[in-house]
Design a protein around this nucleic acid. Structure first.
Lengths: 125, 125
DNA sequence: CTTGCCTCTGACATCCATGTGAGCTTTTAG
DNA sequence: CTAAAAGCTCACATGGATGTCAGAGGCAAG
């Protein structure tokens, strides 16, 4: 498929797909006229890349991690696997932090609602 | 306390503290000479602001939400409470997404390790 | 062939929290 | 009193993913 279709299938802009290629995250074969062509597998790859971006990884870090997806168990993915483990832990810590923040928001909202209820009660009483 | 102390207590740069004030997230009283002074409460406030930044809120959004922290139950915090509820849900969805990503990383790492173990076994056998 | 849409490269623009530096004043320590 | 450290304002820089525009070429349908 060409880049436009990959874009619409993944919900990622054409601009971003070219950027991913520039960053070494995504490969494409070129037609004689120079147009990029992709296989169906790239759809999954792009959504995974998006997932990693959403998890706070930078292009550089994603590039370090991806070899371990491409070539599982290869020697040259040793570093990738290690990096992935590190990022996994970072992500886990981040999740824990976000959960604490969500809890704080829940408490704040509960406090507000309680305050309001009390206010209404005192007005009614 | 002055801005430097607030900075070192919260781990937030002096620059950022001034920025927070500019964005209406943080107030300070000024000494005769114009220096900012803060109470101990601001420490907690700043760390909460940082927490919200980490949760992906922008300054503008944080500013919309904070009134509900300052004046619980006031009429003018109606919108703030609603906004907070929306952000809370957004955050919750984001957390769920990150958990899925973490799971994906765990699976990938497990697959890699299995692949390696298999490789070693076949070499040994 | 032509019209319209897609793609190409390259470059500049944007957002936003934060860094950084200049030039000047205030505070604090010796 | 003096020098170092800290504060002030203003303004420009940065990074990183993405938007956008320009100019040119590719390709399918009428």
């Amino acid at each position: 498929m060409r880049i436009g279709e990959l874009a619409s299938r993944t919900g990622v802009s054409v601009r971003s797909l070219r950027y991913y290629e520039e960053q070494g995250l995504l490969a494409s074969t070129r037609s004689a006229s120079g147009q990029r062509h992709y296989t169906d597998d790239e759809v999954e790859r792009v959504t995974f890349i998006q997932r990693l971006y959403a998890a706070g990884l930078s292009s550089r870090t994603i590039a370090e991690v991806l070899p371990c997806v491409d070539a599982p168990g290869e020697d040259n993915s040793d570093a990738a696997l290690e990096r992935m483990a590190r990022e996994r832990d970072r992500l886990s810590a981040h999740i824990a932090d976000l959960v604490r923040t969500r809890d704080a928001l829940d408490e704040l909202m509960a406090a507000n609602r309680a305050y309001r209820a009390e206010l209404r009660a005192s007005l009614a009483g």
